[in-house]
Nucleic acid binder design. Structure first.
Length: 348
DNA sequence: AAATCGCCCAACCGCAGGACA
DNA sequence: ATGTCCTGCGGTTGGGCGATT
């Protein structure tokens, strides 16, 4: 059942400061203040918007209101569609499974609601954000877990608080695995993106930023991971792949003009985003804490454990190629950071 | 019954950045 | 190279509404 609020908020014109009067209107207004409705949408407005999008598709939000006969700004229309009217939106209570996923994904992505939403089909970033702020956050605090860091509020890791000794031993092992794992990530990334897929990526525009499927675009990946405290390291994988592409002379002219598979892209870019985020966090932890054994912080290891397992499974898909990788050698971070030999080996 | 409180969540705000002319 | 357009994102707001006093 669609819930319609019956009142309209008072108009605030601060939102139209993009119509920068002090700087002599350096840009045109993003929407006209006069005569535009704000606040709750009526059923009639919803119907107009749905009908228009069904006929003409999404996009062109700036001109949509006029064409659809709506006295709203384009932004408001886009938001209404994206957060409420889209047919694939799943409404209602969040299941326990969904909540668990949100918590895990939040541990990886932080407040990157759009990144989390992409992993929960039918849920919008706004919905997840609201649910996090109103329910999950409180629940975590009640359990003594800091919703920001996902660590115990009393200083211990949130996971397995009962067996600290065991945890401590595991952490050392995990820490020593981390540098090796980063290299595995690089290797796995190379495997996941086959040359044929790379050709599609290149053909679709030559760079990752040209990706325009409705889900993750690489530009968004970069954007979301660039909030890390080590912004450069977050994009190392992307940069490295680009460099390897150059080195191996893969160019748009090399490939046929088959239609790229959008679903394949989704997987690729989701993987890319996660791997990039992980490597970013890893590099950040290692570099910023200057541990001579290149161990990650205990908590970071635990937080990433399940994720590492997941990615390791990806890497194990091709045992023949993985067999060439020396598991016993822990790559010093200086080497990992600079060379990403796994990718080089794969593409080289 | 009326007033108040606090939660929920749809909608808004402001900013960032890619695309394009 | 520059300015503008357009879209997406995370943070915030405030009205509705049920619970409580």
């Amino acid at each position: 059942m669609i819930h319609h609020k019956t009142t309209t908020r008072s108009l605030s014109f601060s939102s139209f400061n993009c119509y920068n009067q002090e700087s002599r209107m350096v840009r045109t207004p993003c929407c006209r203040a006069e005569g535009l409705k704000k606040g709750a949408w009526t059923q009639e407005e919803d119907h107009k918007l749905i009908t228009y999008i069904q006929r003409h598709g999404e996009g062109g939000w700036r001109t949509l209101p006029d064409k659809a006969g709506l006295k709203r700004c384009g932004k408001s229309c886009r938001l209404r569609w994206a957060n409420y009217l889209r047919p694939d939106i799943k409404r209602g209570e969040f299941s326990q499974e969904e909540e668990d996923s949100i918590i895990k994904l939040h541990a990886i992505h932080g407040n990157k609601w759009s990144a989390i939403a992409r992993r929960l089909p039918g849920r919008t970033d706004n919905e997840i954000k609201n649910h996090w702020n109103t329910h999950i956050k409180k629940r975590l605090v009640k359990k003594g877990i800091d919703p920001l860091t996902h660590k115990s509020l009393n200083g211990k890791s949130s996971d397995h608080q009962d067996d600290d000794d065991q945890k401590s031993n595991k952490n050392n092992a995990l820490g020593s695995l981390s540098a090796r794992f980063l290299n595995r990530v690089a290797t796995g990334f190379g495997k996941r993106i086959s040359h044929s897929v790379l050709s599609d990526i290149i053909r679709s525009g030559g760079t990752f930023t040209s990706h325009t499927t409705p889900t993750t675009s690489a530009s968004e990946c970069e954007k979301s991971s660039s909030s890390s405290s080590t912004p450069n390291s977050s994009n190392l994988l992307i940069d490295q792949v680009s460099m390897v592409l150059d080195a191996t002379s893969l160019s748009s002219s090399t490939f046929s003009s088959d239609t790229p598979d959008p679903l394949m892209y989704d997987h690729i870019f989701d993987d890319l985003e996660d791997m990039t985020a992980f490597s970013s966090r890893f590099l950040n932890d290692v570099v910023s804490h200057d541990d001579e054994d290149f161990f990650m912080l205990d908590e970071s290891c635990l937080e990433n454990t399940s994720y590492m397992r997941e990615l390791t499974m990806i890497l194990q898909e091709d045992k023949v190629e993985t067999a060439g990788f020396d598991d016993s050698y822990v790559t010093p971070i200086s080497e990992v950071d600079v060379s990403f030999k796994g990718i080089d080996n794969y593409f080289g």
